[in-house]
Simulated scan of single mutants.
Amino acid sequence: MTTPRYKRILLKLSGEALMGDQGFGISPSMIKYVAREIRSITDIGCEVAVVVGGGNIFRGIAASSYNMDRASADHMGMLATVINSLALQDALEHSGVQTRVQTAISMHEVAEPYILRRAVRHLEKGRVVIFAAGTGNPYFTTDTAAVLRAQEIHAEMLMKATKVDGLYDSDPAINENAAFIKHISYMSVLERQLKVMDMTAISLAMDNDLPLVVFNLSDEGSMLRVVCGESVGSRIDNVTDGKNRVDRTAAVSESYH
């Protein structure tokens, strides 16, 4: 059996990742694929927590631009993440993976409330824990929630699944000469305002020295390779040599987010 390099990780999935080729909602084939990928790393003994976005159903920031109250819009977005989390839980359990959903907003009939000690206990028993409803507060994204939960459960790494190979210096869907960045510091991400995660999330990861790995979800087996320590995608951490290694490769045509 392959031995994982990381004992406990947190996986950040965007809501859009669950759409597959659809323009809205949840793709049954895509969510089954994600469940298989997650099982591949639980099977080798890695403890997995997940934070899922809700952009495939509702995006609070976009709604607030149409004069909807931002707090109300964000609460609707949180509920969208619960829908995605329950769908992923079902797919994981059909794959034979015991799973628990914990929500930052109390809804006892459908999920457990978020309780840190209970979440850690689930992880120790080999269950996947899905953290839904963000932080429970408006004005905070699921990216920030992912970093926060990763720190609380003492995850060794945060894995952000995207539609591209990793981090680029500009949107490769717009700029065909976008440069792929293999390794970069948190501070450089902030200074260059690279749109990999929101700035609050990057700052929180930097303050707590939480390494981030950005990888292509659609590349089958990539999740397992990251957990086993292979150099996959882009890594963001406290680079000590002060140099950011940039590899100019052919940019992919997919969406940057």
Rank of each mutant, 00 (worst) to 15 (best):
T3H: 08
P4M: 06
R5W: 10
I9Q: 02
L11I: 10
G15H: 03
L18F: 13
M19Y: 02
G23L: 13
G23S: 09
F24H: 09
G25E: 08
I26N: 10
S27C: 11
S27E: 07
P28G: 11
S29C: 04
Y33G: 02
V34S: 14
A35P: 15
A35R: 14
A35G: 08
E37F: 05
R39C: 12
S40Y: 02
I44K: 06
I44V: 13
G45L: 05
C46I: 10
E47Q: 13
V51Q: 00
N56I: 11
I57T: 05
R59W: 05
A63P: 13
R70N: 00
S72I: 10
S72V: 12
D74G: 04
H75M: 03
L79W: 11
I83F: 09
N84A: 09
S85A: 07
L86E: 05
L86Y: 03
L92A: 00
H94Q: 11
H94G: 15
Q98P: 09
I105W: 01
S106G: 15
Y114Q: 06
I115Q: 04
L116P: 04
L116W: 07
A119F: 00
L123V: 06
L123W: 04
V128A: 00
I130W: 03
I130M: 02
N137T: 00
N137K: 00
P138E: 00
D143N: 03
T144H: 06
T144D: 06
A146E: 04
L148T: 01
Q151S: 14
E152M: 07
I153F: 10
I153P: 12
M159D: 03
K160G: 01
K160C: 02
K163T: 06
V164D: 14
G166M: 13
L167K: 15
N177F: 04
A179G: 08
A179K: 10
R192A: 15
L194V: 15
L194Y: 06
V196T: 01
A201N: 10
S203H: 08
A205V: 04
M206L: 13
N208I: 09
N208W: 14
L210K: 05
L210W: 06
V213P: 06
L217M: 11
S218V: 14
D219P: 14
G221V: 06
V226H: 01
V227R: 02
V232C: 07
R245P: 05
R248T: 14
Y256E: 09
H257V: 13
